[in-house]
């Protein structure tokens, strides 16, 4: 099946006072219909910038896309004018932001905020739009929707507000929904509700979702496929099972190892030492080398290509080269791998 969105060799740079920051340095991925692709990475890894580029929201003139294409519906989105992008934004592709407190207009009734897109993109009459807005509020699980449609954002709790944001994003039945850390600002119990809501809606509407997060727990919950980003590149991509049960990249090992397991062992967490590189002067070779305990000479000289692990699973590390020494992932990560995980579940129930 053809992917609905195809990103090829995307580069995004920002000119700052101190120099040019290469925030995204060649990202490839394809999004299939009805799937959820999670993009995981630390802050500054380029995950948010990538999605901003998809939405045509890279702030000009400082930010620009020097290379690469974003194919959507046979069009290269990087070539479209702002006007043309406006037709796509909110209609075919829409976005949910991190902070429900700031992503809603505080001076506008929520009904009106939902109806805006409907009237603009779907040319509905005011009355039709209102009815549709009520349907949407029902869909995202806001009780008493006919009354609440005329309320202002401050009359909603954080979780309810994020539901409204989801309703706005879904208003025009977008083909692609981009969620940029939609649950990070929420409490765990509310987060669980929103995640359930998004999965539920995806099932009903067959939307493709790009889900950006740094929380691997959330990834395990929502994702079908996972792309791990580091220093502006995808370093490992695969199905959710590939990434959690058969990770290949030492950075992924580090991420998994730095999460404590709940089933009660008191070993030390594997912290990835150091900090991510400064993308104003990205290092030569593998950007992760400086923090990688398995680093080899070649890591310092040449960037690793994406090696194929299986049909669904690729990783960019020289460790996968035939000549590389065979290394085992750290104990804490191995424990998570298939076969050893049931222990945790038993403890919990």
């Amino acid at each position: 099946m053809d992917p609905i969105l195809d990103v090829r060799n995307l580069h995004v740079s920002f000119d700052t006072y101190g120099g040019t920051v290469q925030a995204v340095r060649g990202v490839d991925f394809a999004l299939k219909k009805g799937e959820t692709l999670a993009i995981v990475g630390e802050s500054g890894s380029g995950k948010s910038v990538t999605t901003k580029a998809l939405m045509g929201l890279v702030a000009k003139p400082a930010g620009h896309i020097p290379k690469g294409e974003i194919l959507f519906d046979g069009k290269d989105l990087t070539k479209l004018s702002n006007k043309e992008m406006q037709k796509i934004r909110g209609k075919d592709m829409s976005m949910i932001f991190q902070d429900p407190m700031t992503s809603l207009n505080p001076t506008m009734k929520i009904g009106k905020q939902i109806m805006e897109g409907l009237i603009l993109h779907q040319k509905l009459s005011k009355k039709e739009a209102r009815n549709r807005a009520i349907e949407l509020l029902d869909l995202v699980g806001i009780p008493d929707s006919t009354k609440r449609i005329d309320q202002y954002p401050h009359q909603f709790s954080g979780g309810m507000r994020q539901r409204v944001v989801v309703a706005i994003a879904l208003a025009c039945n977008p083909k692609v929904l981009i969620a940029d850390e939609p649950t990070t600002a929420l409490d765990v119990t509310i987060q669980a509700q929103i995640l359930e809501l998004m999965k539920d809606i995806q099932k009903k509407m067959d939307t493709s979702i790009i889900f950006i997060t740094h929380d691997l727990g959330v990834v395990a919950n929502v994702a079908d496929r996972v792309a791990v980003m580091y220093a502006g590149k995808i370093v490992e991509v695969g199905t959710v099972d590939d990434i959690f049960y058969n990770p290949k990249h030492p950075y992924t090992w580090g991420l998994l190892g730095s999460m404590p397991t709940v089933d009660g062992n008191d070993e030390k967490l594997i912290a990835i030492p150091g900090t991510p590189p400064d993308l104003m002067n990205p290092p030569k070779g593998d950007a992760f080398a400086a923090r990688n305990e398995y680093a080899m000479q070649i890591d310092l000289e040449e960037e690793p290509p994406l090696f194929k692990v299986s049909d669904t699973h690729y990783a960019a590390t020289w460790l996968l080269h035939d000549d590389a020494p065979k290394v085992e992932p750290p104990e804490a990560v191995k424990k998570r791998m298939k076969g050893n995980i049931s222990a945790g579940e038993e403890n919990r129930s």
Binding site: P273, T275, P276, A295, D323, A324, P325
Partner: peptide, 15 residues
């Protein structure tokens, strides 16, 4: 093949 020898970087280089 020499290039695939492991190098042990000092951890605080990335700091």
């Amino acid at each position: 093949p020499e290039k695939f020898k492991q190098v042990h970087l000092k951890g605080d280089d990335s700091e």
